[in-house]
Design a protein around this nucleic acid. Structure first.
Lengths: 184, 184
DNA sequence: CGGGGCATGTAACCTGTTACATGATTAG
DNA sequence: CTAATCATGTAACAGGTTACATGCCCCG
């Protein structure tokens, strides 16, 4: 389970409030570990109870905004976790593949429109990722730290690109008539 | 949520017992939707309660083995689901990326060994997938149905390959000394 | 000063995981 | 005959989702 450690990482990079973290999760960290604001608040409360982070009311704040920062024990925990053996091989979840296989088993069922929507969404996402890469890294990928950060961003780009490529191939096959060979 | 529909798909492809489904999930469907045997039994009970599948004791069975098969209502439900709008943009979960980003934030913390193990695991998986592709499709990718099935299998291969490629690039960066440029 | 939006939650529920239980079957 | 294995579960819990609640601020 990684949510607490994703949050610790975000807060090591820069302290912030719950809402700000939720926004950052939408912008970049969340590319690889999505979390709703409810999850984030619940987890921040746990991390504070464990004394891995501390919070303080934001000065001049509207409402009850609190800013969170990582404590020494939190850094230790994060460092420990990085090298921890990950024995659970991760839960794979890809609905498109399940649907493709279902359509293969049942015959045409209207998956094409669905896939077109998926392609649109993923292309929008790809555009966003590429813009982020330009903005954040424009030519400056020098240190070990920045290389690692850059690898994470480009990995996102490559994974989304692959998903789009596969979805487009799926479209071609879905367009075929049943029983036809298509090799004509 | 797709587990019920992954199970329906598996049972449309071929009826079977709970344990057999668990094994099939390890072999191929589960590449894209993993499920433990406990989950499978629980979900089979629900699907039967919903009258989407029916079960019968296996003839000459050892123990209380029951074989499940999809009913007409189950096929209708699966067909409906295939074309359903998928508005939840899917929960992305990639621990490696979270760890890379954490190591970028904290400096070297022993991630290299972890990544090496990951590469080994993924390469074993890749080998498995490739063997499966050979065995199941050897040259015979003719009909629409088989093309879809083949796309699912090759997509698995391509996704795992990309993960390995990225992990190997990560290894190179992780091996760098902090503060060095590496462009020497 | 009233309505909409925002930050921070609470509650109920569902999914997925972990640990264990039971009875039958097969292997030695 | 006994031990290991297999199929089928049960129970308890942690993680994740959805719907709603509260109080403050800012805009008009």
């Amino acid at each position: 389970m990684s949510l607490p450690h994703a949050l610790l990482t975000a807060l090591v990079e820069r302290p912030g409030t719950g809402a700000e973290l939720a926004r950052r999760f939408d912008r970049s960290i969340g590319w690889f570990w999505r979390a709703s604001h409810q999850q984030i608040y619940r987890e921040l409360a746990r991390l504070e109870a464990a004394k891995w982070i501390r919070s303080a009311p934001v000065e001049d704040a509207r409402g009850r905004e609190r800013s969170y920062a990582v404590l020494a024990a939190g850094r230790r925990e994060l460092k420990r976790w990085i090298a921890e053996i990950e024995d659970t091989p991760r839960a794979v979840r890809d609905e498109l593949m399940v649907r493709l296989r279902a359509e293969a088993a049942l015959g045409p069922a209207g998956l094409e429109a669905q896939v077109r929507r998926l392609i649109e969404r993923e292309e929008a996402r790809l555009k966003l990722y590429r813009e982020h890469e330009q903005r954040a890294f424009a030519g400056r990928v020098d240190t070990r730290e920045r290389r690692l950060q850059h690898l994470v961003v480009t990995s996102g780009i490559r994974m989304v690109s692959l998903r789009i490529e596969i979805a487009k191939e799926a479209l071609e096959i879905l367009g075929m008539e049943v029983g036809r060979d298509g090799e004509s």
